[in-house]
Nucleic acid binder design. Structure first.
Length: 369
RNA sequence: GCGGGUAUGGUGAAGUGGUUAACACGGCGGAUUGUGGUUCCGUUAUGCGUGGGUUCGAUCCCCACUAUUCGCC
């Protein structure tokens, strides 16, 4: 079956709801950890679930190249392949074209670019992306869009938005996995009218949910928030809204306040591997000398890492490049964002979201320069 | 004991008779937003073994000492 979204409560523009999937129901707003290559880096599904994470994101482009969608199809789909029985959303590969293709050529038909693995020439189209996602058998597939860099001229963005709309239609036309939902993506950069157009035209195609894309590509925070504001008002109330690539705690709160239901980001796991941890009082870098003999826990937190390990030990692991360090910090950072969304949901239900934001920011910005 | 080589920051090392001593690693700090898993950026020697000497000037030349290393006895 397709996903089913139920809106249960609104505080300002923030929404508390649930999304029912073939692999269980979860509450929104929700943060999705990123598992690009069919795994959330360093973590087992059991460790992931212990953080109360409910849905993860994986990646079409990467799995298309390795091991290939045929392998995953033979394995019985992505869930079985990676031993994960929760819902999975797959990104279309549109962002990878933007982020890792050096020599790319975008035409109406699709995108030609070089493989990041062996440099061979690849051609990705909306049809290929959707067909691969059909085979991966994720619960939610994403439209193949163009994610233009920031900043870009208005002329370019206009053409890009129109092309992304045509690609969205082409992808939807070939989508044929009845168990899989398909989301459209709103683009338009920082141009208010293009965001509006992109939103209204995407909605006409009638997707199962809508994403706001083209954010967190180098713009400043006020611009990002404006991009959300410019698009989200046009999105239907009865479908989930997903802000792509956003995972800074403050940005998640700002997104939720504006009506976003889903987020994904590499930040918690990447920061973890680089020795950084989210805490109630701001982000800390465990590599700092001041933690060398700090035998307290990382944060006021209920995760496995905080319950069992000290900053000094984690600093030691990170300093020595031991993978356990990144793993333990991934557990904490993911739990931090999941717990943030749990608290946001409670705040929405109790109509005190703005108070929650103020309280959170008061603490979180304490140690930030 | 005799003969030769070498002595530069935490480490491995470049280098020059004349303002700021290369580079790498390490250290320290920062970055990171639909992940190309050990990434990127900044910073890090008032100092060239010790003591003399030559010179306007020495880390670079000379002498002694000390350390270290190789060979021989």
């Amino acid at each position: 079956m397709k996903i089913k979204y139920k809106l249960k409560h609104i505080d300002h523009n923030a929404r508390y709801g649930t999304i029912e999937t073939n692999y269980g129901t979860f509450e929104t707003p929700m943060f999705m950890p990123v598992g690009t290559l069919a795994n959330v880096k360093t973590l087992t599904p059991e460790e992931l679930k212990a953080t109360n994470s409910a849905i993860i994101l994986s990646n079409t482009y990467h799995l298309w190249l390795r091991p290939g969608e045929g392998v995953i199809d033979k394995a019985g789909g992505l869930h079985k392949f990676m031993n994960y029985d929760g819902p999975i959303l797959t990104d279309s590969g549109g962002f990878q074209v933007f982020s890792l293709a050096e020599k790319k050529n975008i035409t109406e038909e699709g995108v030609t670019f070089k493989s990041h693995i062996d440099g061979s020439k690849l051609f990705l189209t909306p049809e290929i992306s959707i067909k691969v996602q059909n085979k991966l058998d994720s619960d939610i597939a994403m439209s193949f869009d163009e994610c233009p860099p920031y900043p870009v001229s208005r002329e370019y963005m206009e053409k890009s938005v129109d092309r992304t709309l045509r690609w969205a239609k082409r992808g939807k036309d070939v989508h044929n996995n009845p168990k899989q939902s398909l989301f459209g993506i709103v683009q338009g950069g920082e141009f208010e009218d293009l965001r509006k157009k992109s939103a209204l035209e995407t909605i006409k195609l009638d997707f199962d949910g809508y994403a706001i894309g083209g954010t967190s590509v180098g713009e400043d925070k006020p611009t990002m928030y404006k991009m959300i504001d410019d698009a989200i008002g046009y999105l239907p109330e009865d479908k989930p809204r997903y802000l792509m690539g956003v995972g800074d705690p403050v940005d998640i709160i700002e997104g939720v306040i504006r009506g976003v239901d889903m987020f994904d980001c590499v930040l918690p796991t990447r920061l973890a591997r680089h020795g950084n941890a989210f805490t109630k009082y701001g982000k800390i870098n465990l590599k700092n000398l001041k933690f060398k003999e700090d035998f307290t826990q990382v944060d006021e937190c209920d995760c496995y890492t905080c319950k069992k390990y000290t900053k000094a030990y984690l600093r030691h692991l990170i300093t020595c490049n031991e993978t356990l360090g990144g793993r333990l910090l991934s557990i904490h950072n993911i739990r931090f964002l999941i717990r943030l969304t749990e608290e946001l949901r409670e705040a929405i239900k109790e109509n005190r979201l703005l108070e929650y934001r103020e309280e959170f920011l008061n603490n979180y910005t304490k140690n930030e320069s």
